[in-house]
């Protein structure tokens, strides 16, 4: 068990270093600005920059419900793809049975995909 986690130590270290550096990049300029006296906030400086216009509405806007269908379809095929990884690395052991099992699984979703396509679920305009 220990060996599995230990293989990921470099990533952990990398994440630690990245976190440290990115924090430094954010905090250092602020600290320097305050220390040197250049820190003089005003309304104009603090407001958002929108191509020179004054900001006139909330940036959050309502999405079309059609995004939902796209997202759901994406999740389904994402999961399908996730099942492919263990299959690919163990294909040598599981042989034809395993190969056919995956083909059956893929066929289920492929026909589902054909259904979605024909129904026009992938059309936008």
């Amino acid at each position: 068990m220990a060996s599995v986690a230990a293989q990921y130590l470099p990533i952990l270290l990398f994440l630690g270093v990245a976190l440290l550096l990115s924090t430094a990049f954010v905090v250092l300029p602020i600290a320097v600005a305050r220390l040197t006296g250049a820190h003089k906030p005003s309304t104009d400086k603090l407001s958002e920059y929108e191509c020179g216009f004054p900001a006139f509405e909330d940036s959050r806007m309502q999405f079309d419900v059609r995004f939902y269908l796209v997202a759901i379809l994406f999740i389904i095929f994402d999961l399908e793809a996730a099942f492919l990884y263990p299959w690919a690395v163990s294909l040598r052991e599981i042989g034809w049975t395993g190969w056919l099992a995956m083909m059956g699984f893929l066929a289920e979703l492929l026909l589902g995909f054909a259904y979605a396509w024909k129904k026009g679920a992938l059309e936008w305009e």
Binding site: Y68, L69, I76, A101, E108, G112, F113, A116, K119, A121
Partner: peptide
């Protein structure tokens, strides 16, 4: 495993 495939299929039909 095949049952899970059917669950995904139902999810797709249901969403549509």
């Amino acid at each position: 495993f095949e049952g899970a495939g059917l669950v995904l299929l139902v999810a797709m039909i249901g969403a549509i």
